[in-house]
């Protein structure tokens, strides 16, 4: 701050408080809606103060789901989301870190080709090649499987480039010292490289967990069987109930539960989250 101007300081706080309110407002309304019984919505306006049906609403959704729209219990959907998010995060990190290791620490024929093939995937977001990718997954018999939900999403140029960048900043002498200390390629990877990349792995994990949990289009296409629904796509199926008034309290409870895990991750691992976000863009 260059000079002291109280009016500007007050203005800054006002802008920030307004920002925080705009950010929090939809969530507040959603939470309030989830605490009311279904009849409270007939009056024509969203209630603005908490209701008394919180426990009932959440327990119903978690344990039995919504039979009318063929929704399995949310606990199952959340478990599916968790499996998907973890598999994608761990899978992406694993295959990216070893391929980055190969590219940085070895010289082999086709090394450049491999590098460019990985680079090209940056330019192929799933939204762009959605139909043919669906067809490949269908042909491989991977519809309605966890493999189909996750494997097509675990190739990532971003993660590979991140690890490549990390490895390039590790001094050559460390590898030479390790070689003199009798470490072969795999031992060097486990004993030196992996522990040294710990922070980057953790930061990337936070980002990828959120990415995996929040997937929408892909599970929407791949799962037709309710037992493989994830909560983020499930919420849409629920809101889509034709010809009847949506059951707002249940939908909003689902929304709250769907956003809770990734939001908690961001709040409690904010440092890693920010690091991951900024690093993956380098």
């Amino acid at each position: 701050m260059v000079e002291n101007r109280p009016i500007l300081n007050i203005l800054a706080h006002l802008v920030l408080i307004l920002g925080v309110l705009v950010v929090a407002f939809p969530i507040y309304i959603a939470f309030i809606a989830s605490t009311h019984g279904p009849t409270d919505f007939l009056s024509g306006l969203i209630p603005l103060t908490p209701g008394h049906d919180t426990w009932h609403t959440y327990m119903t959704m978690l344990t039995t789901g919504m039979q009318t729209s063929g929704m399995p219990p949310l606990s199952l959907q959340m478990m599916n989301s968790l499996i998907m998010a973890l598999t994608i995060a761990i899978g992406k990190i694993s295959i990216s870190i070893i391929s980055a290791y190969a590219i940085v620490y070895f010289r082999f024929p086709f090394r450049n080709l491999a590098f460019w093939l990985i680079f090209i995937t940056l330019m192929l977001p799933v939204e762009v090649r959605i139909l043919p990718t669906y067809k490949v997954v269908a042909d491989l018999g991977m519809l309605d499987t966890y493999a189909g939900l996750t494997i097509p999403l675990i190739a990532s140029a971003t993660a590979t480039f991140l690890f490549r960048q990390v490895f390039l900043t590790i001094p050559d002498e460390l590898m030479e010292a390790a070689r003199i200390d009798g470490a072969g390629p795999m031992k060097f990877f486990w004993d030196i490289l992996l522990p040294m990349s710990r922070n980057n792995i953790a930061a990337l994990f936070v980002i990828l967990f959120i990415y995996g949990w929040n997937q929408y289009l892909w599970p929407l296409l791949i799962t037709t069987d309710a037992s493989h629904y994830t909560i983020v796509m499930g919420i849409k199926r629920m809101a889509d109930v034709a010809d009847s008034q949506p059951q707002w309290n249940y939908i909003m409870a689902t929304a709250i539960l769907a956003m809770l895990p990734p939001v908690l991750v961001v709040i409690f691992m904010q440092k890693l989250f920010v690091k991951g976000l900024i690093e993956t863009e380098k």
Partner: peptide
């Protein structure tokens, strides 16, 4: 890197998973 490991098969093994997923689910559909 100025210096690197010499190993004929290991690098292919390391890069194979990423290549397989990339080719089957990215390049082929594209």
């Amino acid at each position: 890197k100025r210096i690197f490991f010499r190993n004929k098969f290991l690098p292919y093994l390391l890069i194979a998973p990423q290549m397989v997923v990339t080719i089957i689910f990215f390049l082929w559909p594209a």
